[in-house]
């Protein structure tokens, strides 16, 4: 067994970190878009809007029921054959699209559960003082649902950051793609991949720390 080439790793880390912004940008864009889409779908499900409800169920079923990698290939390689406008689609866009649709399907269900989980008495009380349904949703139900949904949504965000690594299969040189190239050049596979693993791990730990702080703040009203 050869000794671990620590010097190589120390030299590699800054190079890899240079690709971290792209990874985080794809995850952030995917998260924001997925959240918007998931909220819309959750409201459709909660209000059981005819037509849209059935479509939402089908959407969730498909994007939860198929692997993310398959979806990415479908968007990047498959769709352009079908729709000529999409021939321009680049790997980054396809990745953000895939992450958005895939994760919004999961997030819609956890947001819906959080909304439904807010006690009925909270709605009753808001309506009883003359608030409209919309005001009740905005000012009373959603803030309380947010507290319940945040831990699971943060989990999905963490998952999404790691899932950006699939973008390298679409030819995007992000964190994982860069590592792959560096490793192929140096043949120091273990050093390269343990380095990238440490970077992902560090980012996720940082987020977990932020999550704990956010949860403490959201739980402030519930301390006895």
């Amino acid at each position: 067994m050869n000794a671990l080439d620590v010097d190589y790793m120390l030299g590699l880390m800054p190079i890899l970190l240079g690709y971290l912004p792209l990874t985080l940008q794809m995850a952030a864009a995917g998260m924001v878009l997925a959240l918007i889409l998931a909220c819309l779908m959750a409201v459709v499900r909660v209000l059981a809007i005819p037509g849209l409800n059935a479509f939402t169920l089908l959407f969730i079923s498909f994007f939860r029921g198929t692997p993310l990698l398959v979806q990415l290939f479908l968007f990047y390689y498959g769709l352009p054959q079908l729709l000529s406008v999409l021939t321009q689609i680049n790997g980054i866009t396809a990745t953000i699209m895939g992450l958005t649709l895939h994760f919004s399907a999961y997030m819609a269900e956890s947001i819906r559960a959080a909304i439904v989980g807010v006690d009925r008495s909270q709605t009753d009380a808001a309506l009883s003082i003359g608030m409209t349904r919309g005001q009740t949703m905005r000012r009373i139900v959603l803030p309380q649902a947010t507290r319940v949904a945040v831990p699971t949504l943060m989990n999905y965000f963490i998952d999404m950051i790691k899932a950006t690594s699939l973008a390298f299969t679409l030819g995007v040189t992000e964190l994982m793609g860069a590592t792959q190239k560096e490793a192929a050049g140096s043949f120091l596979y273990f050093e390269a991949f343990i380095s990238v693993a440490l970077i992902y791990w560090g980012v996720v730990e940082l987020l977990a720390w932020l999550q704990r702080r956010l949860e403490t703040r959201l739980n402030r009203a519930y301390q006895r």
């Binding site: 006690d119 008495s121 909270q122 009753d124 009380a125 808001a126 309506l127 009883s128 003082i129 003359g130 409209t132 009373i140 803030p143 309380q144 507290r147 009203a221 519930y222």
Partner: peptide, 20 residues
């Protein structure tokens, strides 16, 4: 809405807004 605004309700389980 008008009817609700002319009546007020005190609930058995208090039903205070938990986040406020």
């Amino acid at each position: 809405l008008a009817l609700r605004r002319r009546t007020a309700f005190v609930f058995q389980n208090y039903a205070l807004f938990a986040n406020k």
